[in-house]
């Protein structure tokens, strides 16, 4: 369900990004292998305090706990990503954005059935 109407988001008012917050759980990327023997595919992201919790959360959020799947989780900040393959130097990767992380991967069509 959705439908935000309204006011502009002014980033300048947001809490400073560098600030460490002890309540903030790191971001993890989730990869799942379904029952059909295909290799692991990126399905999305989530937050968790550590790797074990990331796996459990992935199970709850992205598989609704069906048997026969294998889950990988990787700290988003640990992923090395290629630069976008665009001609020329017009598309410089914005590597200075601390919180950016790659979401280059296709969502598998059969996710709903996994």
């Amino acid at each position: 369900m959705s439908s935000p109407e309204s006011s502009p988001y002014n980033e300048d008012d947001a809490s400073p990004h560098g600030e460490t917050r002890k309540t903030e759980w790191p971001l993890w990327e989730v990869f799942i292998r379904g029952q059909h023997g295909l290799s692991h595919r990126h399905v999305g992201s989530l937050h968790a305090a550590d790797a074990e919790m990331a796996i459990k959360n992935a199970r709850d959020v992205y598989t609704r706990r069906n048997e026969g799947v294998s889950i990988w989780t990787v700290r988003a900040s640990d992923i090395a990503a290629s630069s976008p393959e665009e001609k020329g130097s017009l598309y410089e990767p914005a590597n200075d954005k601390v919180y950016r992380h790659p979401t280059f991967f296709d969502i598998p069509d059969e996710v709903g059935a996994m």
Binding site: E5, Y9, T23, H101, T103
Partner: peptide
């Protein structure tokens, strides 16, 4: 998570919801 790829964190956005600065659907 999609918004987080743009350089904000979920907690930033949550704070802005809780303070009333960001909106949600009126329905």
């Amino acid at each position: 998570c999609a918004a987080e790829t743009l350089g904000v964190t979920r907690d930033d956005l949550t704070r802005d919801l809780l303070s009333g600065k960001m909106k949600y659907s009126s329905i």
